[in-house]
Amino acid sequence: MTPFEIDDSFAPSERELLTDVLAGDRRQDDPLVVSARRSPRFARRLQQLLEAQAQLERSHGAVASALAEPAQAFDLDVQRVARRQLGLEPAPSARPKRRWFPLALALAAALALLVGWLATRPSVEREDVRLSAQSVLEVAADFSAVRWDGESGKLWFQVRVFDEAGKELERSELLKTNEWRPARASSYPRRITARLMLVNSYEAGSERAASTVERAR
């Protein structure tokens, strides 16, 4: 390829024609341009300048496409680098990155939020899990079983059995059923009081029903 030279020997009319084509004011199939291109020198000059123009177009197209990229996490890291170099953020410690620290911080924050949420949940949710006011506790005449109403499978219950003096005779495990069979019923005194406790995370052990019964003879 002949090296391009800055050649001022073009006649003003030729330069004007080249300028018009490059500026988009005149098409390449314009009769004047077609005629001028019969000169190899003009044709070569036009070709070379159009190539330079095309290279500019391509490069600016690449810029536009790069700047239209959707944002990614990497860009935040780069932004941090820029801020650091501009003295807007302290340089990172020389120690190796401790990646667990942000994770632990996030977990602690999530836990705090959960605890806060549980502690401040609106009371309407509490009412959902309460026993109704008309809870009934039934003790079998031979003390072999204690039954109650309530949402089986959802609430934790505990039955505690006391004698007349208030001494606790037995207590059940935490139950999600509506019935409990005491293991030591045969040794109970003649008169007992069974208390049904509701156990959950925010009202542990609150009494929901009680029944004092005498063993049937």
Partner: peptide
């Protein structure tokens, strides 16, 4: 911030 997208692209 343009450095990130440009480099990736």
């Amino acid at each position: 911030g343009c450095v990130g997208p440009i480099l990736r692209s």
